[in-house]
Design a protein around this nucleic acid. Structure first.
Lengths: 136, 136
DNA sequence: AATATACTTAACCGTTTGGTTTACTATTCA
DNA sequence: TGAATAGTAAACCAAACGGTTAAGTATATT
């Protein structure tokens, strides 16, 4: 289990917490989905949303702070691109639980139960790079 | 701040948001880890933490609301157990991004075919391709 | 019946979050 | 140079968070 005695600020827990918190907003998840299609500038990312530009700007900063997007400033244009690596961290955190939910639904999900618990999982073929959620 | 197109309260996005939010706290993640060892009652779950019992109780409620733990009340004892299923939802959400972080490292040649890039197009300096609508 | 145990609920409090509007800075265009 | 464009920063606000203590509700125990 984790450390429960000390706060341990800015440690591993903190990073994971920031990551999950960044993912806990539908707008932010939508932005990430959009970015799987390729890098984009802030105004383009903001266009589909009803909210103001500063609001989207803040969301992007949160994603950036979580390490999920990186920013390349060229002139006045900020080009955001997806950094998938932190999501790998999520995957890693998730791993010990995988056998748990697979046990719960053993045999019901062919594509998931096909993989041995805790093993390096193969990516199911034919998955599309789109969450299907939100305004995409 | 949910929707982009339609107001979809209490929908799929909302469920995912609650899930990620539940995971965004180190105490809650620690509780989940503890529960992989088997069901436990509230007092046992609370013991390792410095915080008060009601605080832990609230955390457990949040996990329960996210569907991550289920509760079986027997007498005055609440027996909490892990429900891995929502974590499978996280996995499913994560899946479209998997090729992305895999491509970040080596072996990207094969995985790049999964990407629809070419938004990468860099326009020559001094030339105005932007017709005023959408730079990409 | 009285008391202890296992919890939740309620009320409260400071901080964070997600949004707004109004500046402000920096770059590009005419 | 002046104006438009791309974006952040600041100030503000209501609501949600995460914690506290105190009170309340059931169930066991003696």
């Amino acid at each position: 289990m984790e450390k429960v005695g000390q706060p341990d600020p800015s440690g591993e827990d903190e990073r994971l917490s920031r990551l999950f918190r960044a993912l806990s907003d539908a707008t932010r998840r939508s932005l990430l989905s959009r970015l799987t299609l390729g890098p984009a500038k802030v105004t383009d990312l903001a266009r589909p949303f009803r909210m103001s530009l500063p609001a989207v700007s803040k969301h992007l900063k949160i994603l950036e702070d979580a390490g999920l997007v990186s920013r390349a400033v060229r002139g006045r244009v900020h080009r955001l691109s997806l950094s998938g690596e932190p999501l790998r961290q999520v995957e890693i955190w998730l791993d010990p639980f995988r056998s748990y939910w697979e046990a719960t639904f053993a045999g019901l999900r062919r594509d998931l139960s096909a993989h041995p618990p805790r093993a390096e999982r193969r990516r199911p073929r034919g998955r599309r790079l789109d969450s299907g959620r939100n305004g995409d």
